[in-house]
Amino acid sequence: MTNSIRTKQVITIGAVLLLIAFLFTRDIKGLVKPKQESPATPAAGQLTSNTAQDINLQEVSATGKNLINPSLAAEITKLENAYKSAPEGDKAAVAAQLAQKWDDVEQTVPSALYLEIISKQQKSLQSWLNTGGRFMKAFDSSRDSLMQPLLLQKANMAYTNAMAIDSANADAKTGLGITIVNGMGMPMKGIAMLLEVVKKDPSNLKANMSLGTFAIKSGQFDKAIVRFNDIIAKKPSPDAYFYLATAYESLGKNKEAIAAYLNSKKLAANPTLSKFIDKKVAELSK
C-alpha cells in the first residue's frame, strides 16, 4: 500500500469520526467543526471503572440552562425545585419529567443523569437500558474531551447492570460491547459480544452498524462494505449508505462511493449533510 493511499484512508476515517455524532444523534455540530477541534475518542483499553470521577448534576444543569431559551430554563428550574422537595417515593416521577425535558432541548448529559437516578431506584432491565442508551447518546454528541470518558464509563456501568439482570438480552449485550470497543476494555472482547448478538439475530441493525463502523475505524474496508450492503438490503438508511460510501472511497472505488453518497443524501434530506456530500461528490468526480 502506498503512502498516498494510506494518507487518504486516514483522512477518510477522520471524516467518519466527525460525522458519527450527526448520523447517530442528528447533532450536526460535529459535521461543521474543523478536524482539530474534535477531540479524540478514548483509546481502546484506556479506561477502567475506577478512572472516572462522577459528573456533577448541578454543574451540567447550570451549563445546559445557559444554552437554551430562558423560558425553557425556567421550566426546568421549577421541575428541579419540585424534585428536591418531593417525597422519596415521588422523586422518580419528577426525575422522569426532567430527563424528558432535558432530552427535548438536546441536553443529553443532565437527561442521562436523571435516568440514572431512576435506574438506581427501580433497578429494572428497561431502566438501565434507557440509561445506557442516553449516556451513549451524550457520548456520541459530546465535544468535551474531559466529559467523554465519564459518559462512556457511565454507559458501561448501566449496560453492565442490565446484563446482571438479563445476560441474554441483546440490547444490553450490544450496548456493553459498544462501550468496550470504544475504550472500556479490550476491543476484541467487545467485538466478540457484538458478533454473538449478530449470530443469534442477523437482523440486529444496531449491532451490525457498530461492527461496520468499527471495521472502518480499523481500516477493514472490505469487511465494512459487506456489512453495510447487508444492512442496506434489510433496512436502507442515510447513515448506512454514508458509511458504505466512505468504505468505497477508502478503497479508491469512486463510482460506487458517489452512488452511495447520493443515496445517503436522498434519504437524509438534511441541508448540512447535503452540502458535505455535494462537496465530496465533486471531489470524487474529478
Results as ranks from 00 to 15, higher is better:
residue 223 K to H: 10
residue 46 Q to N: 07
residue 230 D to S: 12
residue 38 S to P: 01
residue 187 P to Y: 05
residue 57 L to E: 07
residue 97 Q to F: 06
residue 262 L to I: 09
residue 223 K to G: 03
residue 102 W to H: 10
residue 265 K to S: 07
residue 30 G to C: 06
residue 103 D to N: 14
residue 209 M to V: 04
residue 205 L to Q: 15
residue 213 T to W: 02
residue 97 Q to M: 08
residue 73 A to C: 10
residue 180 I to V: 15
residue 20 I to F: 10
residue 244 L to I: 04
residue 151 L to C: 03
residue 59 E to P: 02
residue 37 E to Q: 12
residue 169 N to D: 13
residue 44 A to R: 00
residue 238 P to Y: 14
residue 19 L to S: 14
residue 238 P to W: 09
residue 2 T to R: 12
residue 10 V to L: 11
residue 127 S to Q: 09
residue 56 N to T: 12
residue 22 F to C: 05
residue 1 M to Y: 10
residue 146 L to H: 12
residue 48 T to C: 10
residue 159 Y to V: 03
residue 142 S to K: 04
residue 211 L to S: 02
residue 226 V to W: 01
residue 10 V to A: 12
residue 157 M to F: 13
residue 216 I to E: 00
residue 123 K to T: 11
residue 190 G to C: 06
residue 184 M to T: 02
residue 113 L to K: 01
residue 243 Y to V: 05
residue 260 A to K: 00
residue 14 G to A: 07
residue 65 K to Y: 02
residue 199 K to V: 01
residue 40 A to Y: 13
residue 17 L to C: 14
residue 176 L to F: 14
residue 28 I to Y: 14
residue 77 T to W: 05
residue 162 A to Q: 01
residue 139 F to M: 10
residue 72 L to C: 05
residue 205 L to E: 15
residue 85 S to N: 12
residue 235 K to W: 08
residue 31 L to K: 03
residue 279 K to H: 11
residue 21 A to D: 14
residue 182 N to H: 12
residue 18 L to K: 15
residue 219 G to E: 07
residue 34 P to K: 09
residue 244 L to E: 01
residue 246 T to F: 01
residue 236 P to K: 09
residue 159 Y to P: 02
residue 213 T to K: 03
residue 226 V to R: 01
residue 3 N to M: 11
residue 132 G to V: 07
residue 191 I to K: 08
residue 10 V to W: 07
residue 188 M to C: 06
residue 157 M to S: 14
residue 200 K to A: 15
residue 211 L to D: 01
residue 17 L to P: 02
residue 159 Y to G: 02
residue 94 V to L: 08
residue 59 E to Q: 14
residue 120 K to Y: 14
residue 134 R to T: 04
residue 159 Y to K: 05
residue 252 G to E: 10
residue 264 S to F: 04
residue 275 K to Y: 10
residue 40 A to G: 11
residue 216 I to F: 04
residue 147 M to H: 10
residue 199 K to H: 12
residue 194 L to H: 00
residue 252 G to T: 09
residue 104 D to Q: 15
residue 118 I to H: 06
residue 238 P to C: 11
residue 96 A to K: 10
residue 195 L to V: 06
residue 18 L to D: 15
residue 247 A to G: 02
residue 264 S to Y: 04
residue 3 N to E: 12
residue 69 N to E: 15
residue 83 Y to T: 07
residue 248 Y to N: 08
residue 116 E to P: 04
residue 197 V to T: 06
residue 232 I to V: 12
residue 129 L to T: 00
residue 106 E to C: 09
residue 52 A to W: 05
residue 188 M to S: 12
residue 217 K to F: 07
residue 168 A to Q: 11
residue 154 K to F: 09
residue 100 Q to C: 08
residue 232 I to R: 02
residue 233 A to V: 08
residue 264 S to W: 03
residue 28 I to D: 08
residue 14 G to R: 04
